[in-house]
Design a protein around this nucleic acid. Structure first.
Length: 827
DNA sequence: GACGACGACCTTTTT
DNA sequence: GGTCGTCGTC
């Protein structure tokens, strides 16, 4: 016990040792939060508390697994295994399975994942004859999900005037009806969605006080990690469970609350002390991870947020060096700069590729970095995106398995009743489901006795259904006789899936086959490891329960050697890397365009950057591009306002790039000022500020004001066509793009002749097309809007049809058609 | 009912 | 640029 505590600093020790009542541990980034949690649990175990009386709730399965491992080392593996430790969803799913009957569910109920939910909502919208352009699935699903997280039933939803006003105002008054039907359909299908797991737990505890009491007695101690990311539903579960013994300890950092989009409520942590007035507060403020400069910079950023718990995170590590800001002309160049920087850093250090992470706001941003890293022969690994279990072929097999276990699983049924094709199409499915709904019964009754329920089917269809049923029944009889692997393997063959996948041999189907193979071996592994753990038998239900809550986050495939990590910032939470690139620091990306209309959302974006920066141990680098290819066109971007929030003293902004900026894009500010006069904007243009700022001042402050006050109103309306045009010309310059050629034909008419006179002052106009073709010569240096700096290698043809070959510094060599190419001359 | 072509819309973030 | 859904044809 004593040795245990020797590894902790004073404030950590205090937090670990206080177990007499509720406590809140505010743990700054890198302050050893996990350590405190594990040591606390270890201490509790060593003091004699049985492991099954401790509930520890984490945010991801991975976090739970890691903590278990550490506790296994600190105490012993057997105790660690018996802890009730896991995500909210997995822990309460376990409880729900054993109490399901009280809620009117069979214990083998299905978990609908988000795709299932959306599909169901989609079909309800269709059933109701609503316009799916107005009732967008994502929106409706979001409304329902937040209602559930706020514990608002369909009835309460309909009765809540505030909600109703909102829905009516957004022209979607019938969401209440969709919600109601959705709930009924889930019930008929014996299915719960993710939110239901928490909602149903609350209902269970509300309606069955005896059940609640038994769990209150059972769990002596409840710990919650990442408390800042809990939602109301989770808050209430924890509150109720701990109401008797008051042994609750929550750990979190309000500065790292980044999940409000899925209902997380930062108020939970901010108000903890009101909820538990007798609680103790502990603060862990020493950051052991990062350099002083990184910590200070992150502090300077987060200080711009209004709502937070006061704390002072500090580091006693090396001071470190200032935070480099990489400025690129285009998204493409940003990729090259980052890749080059990594190469450069590895020349002067012994860092492995594992020591580097590229963190971005959205998954879509990964591609460019993948390309640039590939070109540099740097190995990398992309996290996120489509999880293994979300792939079509995998979901198909899983749907079969789900249907075996739960015959009423409507979404699984729809998915596979006609896959592989067996002549039971849309129409038949519709009839079956309509009948199920009409009779308020599960789909299995209808499928087994279509004629009794007066479903109008021709005899051929009935036959086909019977054949399908026979197949399912055959396997269903085996689910508690054979293990998952055996069942799935046989099922793949007999259902015709293997056949279907093997039919054509395009490269895509090959990988589908491989995926199926991987699924099978995963099942095999699952069975074996469960047997090793001492389980007597491992069946389908165990497997499905396990994977229903699994995400790719939890895939532990990271053993594959030395690679650079690419992931979203959300995915990076809780991780640390020696060197971190935070990329795409541009308005509308980071902060996201969706966050701009609310201060709350904006603060969350700021916290997101805080999280990103504090992942770094030694070096944190920030980057942005001045133009970005998005949704099929080039957009000009503004540096993120967050760059301006950071303490400028701590940033390292290359003077060269601000000099380059003057010749390039920034000239549009001169133009703008020239035409309209500075007074209109009431501030200096970006670059004139940044010019001064080499050593002092805030180069981004101007940018921020600028984009807010001038609005890009002008460019949004009148000039948007110009922008599009520009994107086509941009593409034309790209020899790889075939499509663009056809596009450029249509825009041919105007842009060529427009140059100076008739065009309004826009970005487009600035690094304008070159009119005096004779000015060009081989060897001339140019600055291209998208490709950056380059040198002209050859010139071919004359006049507007002249093409030049340019060797770009970071974008390779490209052929540019002069009349379209947008660049300015250097030298 | 299956398949292929075309067009719309898209992008936060995930248990 | 990529995916998903719709529409038209066989």
């Amino acid at each position: 016990m004593k040795e245990l505590l020797d590894n902790l600093n004073d404030s950590q020790k205090e937090a670990v040792l206080f177990n007499d009542g509720p406590s809140l541990i505010i743990a700054g980034a890198g302050s050893g939060k996990t350590r405190v949690l594990t040591y606390k649990i270890a201490t509790l175990l060593k003091s004699g508390l049985p492991p099954w009386s401790i509930m520890a709730l984490t945010f991801t399965n991975k976090a739970a697994r890691e903590m278990k491992e550490r506790i296994a080392q600190l105490v012993d593996p057997a105790s660690a295994a018996r802890l009730w430790m896991g995500t909210f969803h997995s822990v309460f799913l376990r409880i729900l399975r054993s109490e399901a009957s009280r809620l009117g569910y069979p214990s083998n109920f299905t978990i609908y994942d988000t795709t299932d939910s959306k599909n169901l909502i989609k079909s309800i919208i269709k059933d109701m004859d609503l316009d799916d352009k107005v009732y967008k699935v994502n929106h409706v699903q979001g409304r329902i999900s937040s209602a559930k997280n706020d514990l608002i039933s369909p009835e309460a939803y309909a009765a809540n005037s505030e909600i109703q006003i909102e829905d009516v105002r957004s022209k979607r008054p019938l969401i209440k009806e969709i919600y109601l039907r959705y709930t009924e359909r889930c019930k008929l299908a014996s299915a719960m969605d993710f939110d239901d797991i928490l909602l149903m737990t609350n209902i269970l505890f509300r309606d069955f006080p005896d059940v609640l009491a038994s769990y209150q007695d059972r769990f002596n101690f409840i710990l919650v990690d990442e408390y800042q990311d809990t939602n109301f539903s989770q808050y209430l579960i924890v509150k109720k469970l701990s109401d008797k013994q008051h042994h609750i300890c929550v750990v979190g950092d309000d500065s790292q609350s980044i999940y409000s989009f899925r209902g997380a409520n930062i108020e939970n942590i901010l108000n903890f002390r009101n909820t538990y007035p007798e609680s103790r507060l502990f603060k862990l403020e020493q950051n052991y991870r990062s350099t002083q400069i990184i910590v200070e910079a992150a502090n300077s950023l987060i200080a711009k947020n209004k709502s937070q718990i006061r704390k002072h995170v500090f580091s006693k590590n090396d001071k470190g060096s200032r935070i480099p800001v990489l400025i690129a002309y285009s998204d493409l160049e940003e990729g090259f700069m980052v890749a080059n920087k990594i190469v450069e850093m590895r020349l002067t250090s012994l860092d492995n590729l594992n020591d580097f992470a590229i963190l971005y706001r959205t998954n879509a941003q990964s591609r460019i970095f993948e390309e640039s890293l590939r070109k540099r022969n740097l190995l990398y690994r992309v996290y996120g995106g489509l999880s293994f279990y979300q792939r079509k072929e995998i979901k198909d097999v899983v749907a079969y398995l789900r249907l075996l276990l739960n015959p009423d699983d409507e979404e699984a049924f729809k998915r596979i009743v006609n896959y592989p094709p067996r002549g039971i199409g849309e129409t038949t499915q519709q009839k079956l489901i309509a009948a199920a709904n009409a009779h308020k019964t599960g789909i299995s009754n209808i499928v087994e006795h279509p004629l009794q329920y007066e479903v109008q089917l021709n005899s051929g269809t009935v036959k086909k259904l019977e054949t399908f049923q026979a197949l399912i029944q055959k396997f269903r009889q085996q689910i508690f006789e054979k293990n998952v692997y055996e069942i799935a393997e046989q099922l793949l063959r007999e259902s015709g899936i293997i056949n279907d996948v093997s039919q054509d041999t395009s490269s895509e189907t090959i990988s589908r086959k491989e995926n199926l193979q991987e699924l099978l071996s995963g099942m095999n592994e699952f069975v074996n490891s469960r047997l090793e753990e001492g389980n007597e038998a491992v069946f389908l239900n165990d497997y499905l329960s396990e994977i229903s809550l699994l995400t790719d986050q939890d895939e532990e495939k990271s053993a594959e050697g030395d690679r650079i990590t690419l992931m979203t910032i959300h995915a990076a939470k809780g991780l640390e890397f020696k060197n971190v690139f935070v990329v795409g620091l541009e308005e509308d990306i980071f902060p996201s365009a969706y966050s701009l209309d609310s201060e709350r959302a904006l603060e969350e974006e700021r916290r997101l950057l805080y999280v990103a920066m504090t992942r770094a141990e030694r070096t944190c680098l920030l980057s942005y591009a001045k133009s970005r290819f998005r949704n099929g066109q080039i957009n000009f971007t503004k540096p993120s306002r967050f760059l301006g929030d950071l303490d400028q003293k701590l940033l390292d902004i290359p003077s060269e790039s601000s000099a380059m900026a003057n010749t390039g894009t920034c000239s549009w500010d001169e133009e703008r000022s020239g035409r309209f006069g500075t007074s209109l904007f009431g501030h200096k243009s970006d670059h004139s500020v940044s010019e001064r700022s080499g050593s002092y001042g805030n180069p981004f402050a101007g940018a921020r004001l600028g984009e807010q006050s001038t609005g890009r109103a002008g460019s949004k309306t009148g000039n948007s066509t110009n922008r599009q045009r520009q994107s086509t010309t941009g593409l034309t310059a790209n020899p790889l793009s075939v499509k663009s050629r056809t596009l450029s034909a249509s825009s041919d008419k105007s842009p060529v002749k427009l140059p100076s006179a008739s065009r309004p002052s826009t970005v487009t106009n600035q690094s304008a097309t070159i009119q005096n073709y004779q000015d060009l010569s081989v060897g001339q240096h140019i600055l291209h809007e998208r490709f950056g700096k380059g040198e002209i290698m050859t010139i071919e043809g004359k006049g507007p049809d002249c093409t030049i070959n340019v060797q770009f510094e970071h974008s390779g060599s490209r052929k540019l058609l002069l009349k379209f190419a947008r660049f300015s001359l250097l030298d």
